[in-house]
Structure formats: C-alpha cells, structure tokens
C-alpha cells in the first residue's frame, strides 16, 4: 500500500535519512557528515540534495543507492536525489554530534576551519589516549578524506579526517 505524499512531511523524510549512514564510517549519518544539503518538496516529489566530500569518493553512488533503498522501504512514492557541487563541501558542515561519533569510532575529527592545511605541523589528538604527541605518517589515508597519523605515546596508528 502506498502512502499518500500529502501525509508525509519534510521532517518525516529527514528522520528517515538520519538512518542513512556513510558506508565507510557506518556510525555517522549523512546529515552529521554534512553530505545531506537539503530536503524540499516540489509538488508531489521530495527532492533530496547531497554533495560529495571528495570528487572521486566512491561512497557517493552508494549513499544515493542507500537513500533510494531507505525511502522505498518506507513506501515514499515520489522522490529524487540530486547531487550538487556548489558550494563545495567543507568539514565545517560536519555537526558536533558527527565529530563526537567519529572520535568514538577511532577517527580524529577535523580540527579548525576549512582550507588546505599544513599536515606536517599539525598534531591532531590521538582518538584512543587523547595525547597530542602525534606525527603524520601520510597525507593520504584509507579513504580520500583521511590522513594517516601515529601516536607517539600509545603507539597506535590512527586516521585523521582532513579539513576541507
């Protein structure tokens, strides 16, 4: 049975989308990540706008697919997902809740404001022991959005979410 579109609100859609997570970081929703830019209604159709984190990020196709899956499973009859490039995604759009969840997951959230940064002179705190005695291993990590660091105190390697 299909639900009538007029009974569904944008808030309902947003609630459902809160359950769509980043496929690489399953603890953080696309809203917390700042990838979900807008939900609006055009006539009968909900238009969901997402923005990519990095150009080559393979997660974008997966996220689009997961949004379709989630909304279809809840019998949302009319919707479309649009990708928008401008303004370009920045880590500033990540919510505080998102940053907290990232740290819990073992990834140090982005520090400071957007813009390219001098990674070598940066010491993001270790997500495991909070020490700032850390060093850069590589500016490129396990995914396009992360850099690889090492903690000199607890010796754990860890991912740092790069500022953009």
């Amino acid at each position: 049975m299909e639900t009538e579109t007029r009974d569904i609100t944008i808030t309902d859609i947003r609630k459902l989308l809160d359950e769509v997570t980043d496929p690489e970081i399953p603890v953080i929703s696309i809203h917390d990540l700042g990838v979900l830019r807008d939900v609006r209604k055009e006539g009968d159709t909900f238009v969901i706008t997402i923005t990519p984190t990095y150009s080559g990020c393979p997660a974008m196709d997966m996220i689009t697919l997961n949004i379709h899956g989630k909304l279809r499973a809840h019998h949302i009859p009319h919707f479309k997902v649009e990708t928008q490039l401008a303004p370009a995604w920045t880590t500033d759009w990540m919510t505080d809740e998102g940053k907290r969840k990232l740290k819990e997951f073992g990834i140090t959230p982005p520090m400071g404001s957007k813009g390219s940064e001098d990674l070598i002179n940066r010491h993001p705190p270790c997500p495991f022991c909070n020490s700032e005695n850390t060093e850069l291993v590589s500016a490129f990590g396990s995914t396009a959005c992360k850099a690889l660091f090492r903690c000199r105190d607890c010796s754990e390697p860890f991912d740092y979410f790069k500022c953009h």
Binding site: P52, Y54, S55, G56, C57, P58, V137, S138, A139, F140, G141, S142, A144, L148
Partner: peptide
C-alpha cells in the same frame, strides 16, 4: 603508505 597516496591521487583525478 605511498601506494595508498598515489592511488588516492589517482582517485581524485578520475573523480574530477
């Protein structure tokens, strides 16, 4: 680490 770096760069340029 450098293998990962160069494939990340490759991914970026293909994405662009």
């Amino acid at each position: 680490e450098q293998d990962i770096a160069i494939t990340n760069i490759s991914l970026d340029t293909i994405g662009q």
